[in-house]
């Protein structure tokens, strides 16, 4: 069942020239986690705020659990939407304790039931024992857990998370990512997570929507987004990619680094670019080789080599962390693309 549906949503901020969202259609299935991924300023936070009811689109419809909450003219106010929101800066109430923060949205419950709900949710997020602390007495990770607990307490239909890990230290980030994933799994709640970090999106989401300048580039599962991006923008944004020029001849794509299957059936003579990920390229020293090593970045788990082809084109190759060749080494390339992704050459 589609829990959240956006169809044809457009939104322009006052005094802005370009629309923040342009004819955007998206849906989220019940129980799934959708990640909205894109560079800063692409409109991803605006999508979240429109779902929550803080922004009012000028066109298009938004439905939550089948109910029309926005039709481009009238909007249901945030307090009547039943969404839980976790802000980037957590937005904890500084004048309330952890317990009071979490109980804030539980006023319709009897005091006893509210207290039980708070205890239950504190256990869920692992904050038992911190009931009477004020927000400023908590660490960043603890503050975030309170923010999530507070959003989950009134049992919202959907949990919206805006860059939830960006304010955490890098070592804390990985741990919180796993914890939040576990909380989402255990509650089975539908979630929408906004992020600019593709690793975060890959790790957390069932589906990823890539946004660029207010437009939807692609919605797909994480593997497809990485392996078969539908636009050069997506290909570049979700990981290292090189675009190797080639030409379709006799049903094959001929490039400087080898011949590839013409899987999408471009007509004979088409100039195309083929996307190559570093993990598709393997290098072995050879003399004389066809290419030369121009640079190496040690990344801990891998060595990322920059290889210069005779035409001046660069390719990247990911090699084992222990495989070290000096710069200038002459090499032979083996390109084994698992997924052949081609784009008609941009002019």
């Amino acid at each position: 069942m589609k829990l959240i549906e956006l169809s044809g949503v457009s939104l322009t901020y006052p005094n802005a020239v370009e629309p923040a969202l342009h004819d955007l259609s998206l849906d989220v299935k019940e129980g799934a986690t959708l990640s909205i991924l894109g560079p800063s300023g692409c409109g991803k936070t605006t999508v979240l705020r429109a779902i929550a009811g803080f922004e009012h689109p000028q066109a298009g419809e938004i439905r939550i659990a089948g109910r029309l909450v926005c039709d481009g003219k009238q909007c249901v106010p945030p307090e009547e939407r039943g969404v839980g929101m976790v802000f980037q800066d957590y937005a904890l109430f500084p004048h309330l304790t952890v317990t009071q923060n979490i109980a804030f949205g539980l006023r319709r419950l009897a005091p006893r039931a509210a207290a039980d709900a708070v205890t239950h949710i504190l256990d869920l997020v692992g904050l038992a024992g911190f009931e009477d602390r004020y927000p400023h007495e908590l660490s960043g990770g603890q503050q975030q857990r309170v923010a999530i607990a507070r959003a989950l307490a009134p049992k919202p239909v959907v949990l919206l998370l805006d860059e939830p890990f960006s304010n955490l230290d890098p070592d804390m980030r990985g741990q919180m990512r796993e914890e939040v994933q576990e909380i989402l799994r255990r509650t089975g709640i539908t979630a929408v997570l906004v992020t600019h970090d593709h690793d975060e999106a890959f790790a957390m989401a069932d589906r990823i929507a890539v946004l660029n300048r207010g437009r939807l580039e692609q919605v797909d599962d994480p593997e497809s987004i990485y392996h078969t991006p539908s636009t050069p923008f997506v290909a570049n944004f979700v990981g290292q990619a090189d675009f190797l020029p080639g030409r379709v001849e006799n049903g094959k794509i001929h490039t400087e680094a080898g011949v590839f299957e013409n899987v999408t059936g471009h007509p004979h003579g088409t100039a195309v670019e083929i996307m190559i990920r570093p993990d598709d390229v393997h290098i072995t020293p050879a003399s004389p080789g066809t290419a030369q090593i121009a640079g190496r970045q040690f990344r801990g788990s891998e060595n990322l080599y920059t290889v210069l082809l005779p035409s001046g084109q660069y390719l990247h190759s990911s090699e084992a962390s222990t495989t070290v060749y000096p710069i200038g080494t002459s090499v032979e390339l083996t390109v084994a693309a698992t997924h052949i992704v081609t784009f008609v050459k941009r002019r």
């Binding site: 929550a52 009811g53 803080f54 106010p77 945030p78 307090e79 009547e80 939407r81 969404v83 839980g84 929101m85 802000f87 980037q88 800066d89 937005a91 904890l92 109430f93 500084p94 004048h95 309330l96 804030f104 949205g105 006023r107 319709r108 507070r150 959003a151 009134p154 919202p156």
Partner: peptide, 26 residues
């Protein structure tokens, strides 16, 4: 921080409730 007040909205408080329970105490 405006998101503090927005949080209160998403937790079911109307504008007056936000004023009384969040803005004034802060």
């Amino acid at each position: 921080n405006p998101s503090v007040e927005e949080t209160a909205r998403s937790l079911g408080e109307g504008p007056l409730g936000v004023l009384r329970r969040v803005t004034l105490p802060m």
